[in-house]
Design a binder for these strands. Sequence first.
RNA 1: GGACGGUUAGCUCAGUGGUAGAGCGACUGAUUGACGUUCAGUAGGUCGAAGGUUCAAUCCCUUCACCGUCCACCA
Length: 702
Amino acid sequence: MKEEISKTYDQSKESEIYKLWEESGYFNPDNLKGEHFTIIMPPSNANGSVHVGHALGFTLQDIMIRYHRMLGRKTLWLPGTDHAGFETQVVFEKKLDKTGRSRFQMTREEFYKEVWEFVQQYKTLTEQSIRRMGASADWSRNIFTLDPRIIKIVYETFEQMYNDGLIYRGNRISNWCTKHQTGLADLETTREERTDPLYYIKYGPLTLATVRPETKFGDTGLAVNSKDPRYKKYIGQEIEATGLLGKFKIKVIADDLVDKDFGTGVVKVTPAHDATDYEIWLKHKDEIPGPKQVIDKRGKMDLPGTKYHGLKVAEARKIVAEDLEKAGLIEKIDETYKHNVALCYKCKNVIEPLIIPQWYVAMTKKLADGRPSLRDIAVEAVKSKKIKINPHRFEKVYMHWMKNIKDWPISRQIWWGIPIPVWYKGEEIKISENSPGVGWTQDPDTFDTWFSSGQWPYATLMAQGEKDFETFYPTQVMETGWDIMFFWVARMVMFGLYKTGKVPFEHVYLHGLVRDKDRQKMSKSKGNVIDPLGITDQYGVDALRMALVVGNLPGNDLPLAEDKVRGYRNFANKIWNAARFVMQNTEGYDPEAKLTSADKKILKDLQTIVKNNTKRLDKFDFAHAAEDLYHYFWHTFADKIIEESKPKLADEKTKASAQRMLMEVLETNLKLLHPFMPFVTEAIWQLNHKDLLMIQKWPEKV
RNA sequence: GGACGGUUAGCUCAGUGGUAGAGCGACUGAUUGACGUUCAGUAGGUCGAAGGUUCAAUCCCUUCACCGUCCACCA
C-alpha cells in the first residue's frame, strides 16, 4: 500500500470521490438518524453559470451540513433552482437582441417556450457545478421553482392571503421601466445623483421650480405649505395662468409635504407622473382633479393634437423648456441642481412613475381576525430571537427596513414567470389556476420572482410531502448573501410565519460578496472574474473552499486572489504528504499501545483543538475554525509533532506509542478538516478504511 | 437627509484593558531524508487624528477626518 501512494495529492480524482458519496445514499437524510438539521439551499438562478460567489455559499452551507451529519443528525440540504423571472427575462432578451430579435415580435407562447429551453440548459449546468463544488446535497429532493408542486403551493398562499385581505389590486403610481415594460418594486430601483437644470416656471402670479417641465401638461393643482406666509392668500383659490397650450385655471392647495425652502415654495401637483404628487392628490381628492396621464408606457408624450405628442420624455423636456423660454414663462434656470434619480436596477434607464394596476401585498395591515400584520410578525420573530441574524448588526438594518416598509407590488408585466391566477369577467374577479369558464380572461401579469422564492423554505418541503414538512421544518439555517436580505430573507420570514405559524429558519448567516484582490466587484467587462470551475480544475475544490472561508467574516466582502487559492492547494498537498508519512510508518500499529507521557501530552493538546473547533463551528465562526485547523495541522502537527516523531519511531521503546499517537492525531484532524476540505480528507481516509469519512462520528469533546 | 461599517506590517485581514498577530510578498540560509506545492530564520507597525476614563488603551467613552455601504417622496 505504502508504495502506491502518490507523492502529490491528485485532485483530478475529486469527481470519483463525489460519486462515491452520492451513491452511498448518505446525502439523503432518509438514510440517517437523529434530530433533524435542515438547510434549504438558496435556489440558483438558472440563467447563467455559477460564479465564485455561489461557490462561497455552497461551501459555507456544505461545511455546516457535513459537520452536522458527522454529529449524528438527520441532515438535509435541499437543493433547487430558480426560474428568476425578471432576471432571466432580461438575460434572455439581451440574447435575443444580439440576433436582432425582440420579444415584442414573438407570441407569448413562443417566447415562454424558448426561455424554458434556455433555462433547462443552465439548470443542468448549474446542478453539475454545485456537485463539482462538493456540495453534499440531497439530489433526490432537488426542485425547481416552476415545478407544478411549487406553483400549487404558491397559488394556495395567494388565495389564502387574498381571502385574509392581505392581497389587493391597486391602481396607483408605480415604478415603470420603459425599456423592460414592467412595473418594479422600490427595491428593484437604484438611485443615482445627477445634475439637472431646475426650471423656475411662471404660473400666473406664482412661480415654481421643477426639473420636469414636460409633465406640466399633467398638472392638476399647485401646492404650498400651509405655514408659508407668502402664499396664504392663494390657498383654496383658483389662479389663472398662461401655458404653452393657452390659458388655464388651476387650484392652489396646502400640503405639508411641500418644503417652504425648496425652490419658491410652490410645487405643481402632477399625480399621474410623480409619487409624491400622487400622494398629495390622495389627500386632496375633493379639491383638485385626479391624475391626468401625459406620458405613455414607452416613455413618450401622450398629448394627441399637440406638437409634443410622441416625443420621448427627454426630448420633450428640452423642447418644452425652450418653448417656455420663448413664451417668457421661465423666470430662471438653475443649472447646478443636484438630485437623485430613480433608475431600473437592471438597465439603469430612468424610472417613469406611471399609474398602472398592480397586485400588492399589504405589509402593515392587521388581519380582520386580529392577527398582526406581516411586518409585525417579521419584526417580532427577530426581536424575540426566534430568528438570529449573523452578523448581529444586520438585525438593525432589518428592523430599520421593516419600520419603513411599504406595500409590496407582486405583479410584473413580464412573460417569464408564474402567471397570476386571477380571472376577470366584467367586474367579477375569480382566483383560479385554470379558466373558470367562457368569457373569462386571465390577468396578463406574472408574479415577482420573490413571491415564489419567498415561500421556498416551506414550499420545497411541502412539495415533497407532508412527512418531510413535519420532519424538517422549521429549518435551522438560511445562508445567503447580505445583498438579498430585503428581497428574500425578509419575505421568507413573513411568508413562513404567516403560512405555518413558525419561523422558516432559526439562524440567518449572511456572507459577503466575493471581490477581486483589489476589492473590485468581479465583472466580465473588467476581466477580473475568477471562474470557480476553472480554478477548481487547476487547484482542486478543497483549495478554493479554504480560500473562500479563511478570512471571510459574515457580512464582510472578501477579496480573493488566485495566490490565496494556490496557498491552500499547497495545504491540501501538505495534508496528503503528512498522511503518507504516517501511513508509511504505522503499518500494523497497535491502537491500544501504551502511550509515553510526551505522546499523552500531544493527545491532550489535541483535545483543546477539538473543543475549540467544535465551539467555533457552533458559533458559525468558520473563518477562525478553518484558520486554526490550518495552523495546527501545518505548524504543529507537520512541523513539530511529525518531526519529533522521527527519532521516536526509530527507537523500539517509543515506537508503538508514537505510531498510535500519530494515527490518532492524523485521523482526528481528518475529521475536523473534512467539512472544510472534504475531498482530500476523504481520499486519505479511503486509503485505509472501507467506510466513508463523511459519516464518521465527530471527535468527542473531552 | 438618515443609518451602519471600516481605518492595525508592502498587500489582504485577525486580535486583546497590561511591552502587537497570521497569510501572502520581501530578504537570508538549508535541503536528494512524507512534502521544494518544503524547512529554519530575518526585516517590517508611534494599531487614522485629538481629547477623556484608568495604575495601564490599539482595545472603553467623546469629537473629528477619510474610505465604503445601505436606506430615503424635497418637486
